[in-house]
Design a protein around this nucleic acid. Sequence first.
DNA 1: CGGCGTTTTGAGAGAGCTCAACATCGGTGG
DNA 2: CCACCGATGTTGAGCTCTCTCAAAACGCCG
Lengths: 219, 219
Amino acid sequence: MGAAAAPALIGSMWPAAPSERITMAAKDWLPPNVRAAERLLKAGQALFRLGSRTTGLYEVAAGTIRLVRVDRAGREAVIHVAAPGETLAEASLFSPTYHCDAIAATDAVVRFYPKAALLAEFKRDPAAAQAFMAMLARRIMQLRARLEQRNIHTARDRVRHYLALNAADGLTVVVPGTLKDLAAELGLTHEALYRTLADMAADGEIERGRKTIKLIPTI
Amino acid sequence: MGAAAAPALIGSMWPAAPSERITMAAKDWLPPNVRAAERLLKAGQALFRLGSRTTGLYEVAAGTIRLVRVDRAGREAVIHVAAPGETLAEASLFSPTYHCDAIAATDAVVRFYPKAALLAEFKRDPAAAQAFMAMLARRIMQLRARLEQRNIHTARDRVRHYLALNAADGLTVVVPGTLKDLAAELGLTHEALYRTLADMAADGEIERGRKTIKLIPTI
DNA sequence: CGGCGTTTTGAGAGAGCTCAACATCGGTGG
DNA sequence: CCACCGATGTTGAGCTCTCTCAAAACGCCG
């Protein structure tokens, strides 16, 4: 594809990463006094537009939202595809306008947290502010880890990286969802992941269970 | 490499991304009352270790620091390579222990911000807390944009994505530093970037200046 | 002028993507 | 209970893309 694929839409041919592994439920960071309003979106509907005034931040409850920026040459660039559990436009709390478009990629449900209420609460209650900061900090770590993963080119090393980071007890990884989902999270095709796991098992580097992968220590 | 390269070191064969484009100087988020202590590190020296008690966060002033996690099977996974201007271990403010190793990849200089002083200041001064939150939120946006970029596989689409996001006036991009640096930031080899730019120029998609790239609108 | 790093172009090979076929598993309904 | 069906899991073959190795022009600075 590449050259042929086209000027129209940039970076959307790749599967979006599924919802994040480490769940960060709203209750972990949301000031108890701030109530969220749910809002339903049809596929293709805009949640907000570049340049419009910021009113608050959103949490995706269902479906996916695409954050998109369009340049003057008419080309579109996907900044992020938000899956359920993720928050959108955290930076909007500190900026007067949104700086990208948010479009529902599917029918979706979002929860809206008004900016003024959040900021007031953070000002009133330092603990709430800290909880929010902690959430942001964790998210940064997650993103960094995932970015580093994408810098790894071979499927095998990428799987190794994932296993090393997700081995809860240091050796065993429980695969959440399907291997197909995992492949998307790793930025691989499912075929590539299947092959890689099969090769690693054949080489005695891992052992595979029903929903688990066990790292075999090098002797 | 790949299979042969090996179990020893995962994910370090790739050039680290250079310092971030959008500078976020410490003065933008640092509470004025908190003073930083500089610390010099020799290459290979540890800044902190997994499990050790958190004392604060660091800002890289010079050199690079690798954040690394080691699994029980003895394999190492690089979580992040921090370049000058970046902060390390923001999450340490909200956690009792560090959860990875920080090792100087080169001789380096870091600035240390004590956890207690920062948290106290955030509690005392909501504006300082907000500035810190804003910094974290911006960093999340940056990381998301970069992550989305890495999901794009062809060099051409990746360059398009970068140009769309960095065209200040909507059409012209000023290349900071060398094209070689840009290639590293894009996660491409410099050869691949040169070729891609040459092809795009030949196809009339862009025009190249001394230190600029101009997007040509599609007719 | 002589290095030194960036920019450029060339040729080759490896790795993953794509397309395709098939196996397996779980649920559904007759 | 069994046949059917869809989604997941698995394997095969070919192709395209980038990486790698290599070499040469170009620009800059001492």
